[in-house]
Amino acid sequence: MSERKVRVIVAKPGLDGHDRGAKVVARALRDAGMEVIYTGLRQTPEQIVQTAIQEDADAIGISILSGAHEYYFGRIIELLKERKASDILVFGGGVIPEDDVPKLKAMGAGAIFGPGTPTSVCIDWLNSAVREKWARETA
């Protein structure tokens, strides 16, 4: 029997073209045995949320270096609520000042990984957060 796999959307919202981080994370998650749906650049929040729904993703990871994180996190989380898909976890990274992290978490972001975070930290967080999510589903 094939076991359930962690499925993660890795997306670059907006116009920011710096995708080194997103791609490195995508590879690291794959190497950790996850299925990564990579959407590429210039995604609107609507596209990201619909993708997560169609792919039955467990989590959405977004990478933003342009300073537009408040807008994108806010909008994506709001859309997930509208579509009754708030169980999908949202996390992210990029150039995000630490001061802004509490605000993003209050919006509903599960974790924010700043520059220099080892990918293993992100993998560990995902593995445990997604397994908690699965436990909630069967409960």
Partner: peptide, 9 residues
């Protein structure tokens, strides 16, 4: 598409 990005970088 410019929403949230104007004047940012």
């Amino acid at each position: 598409m410019a929403q949230g990005e104007v004047g940012k970088v």
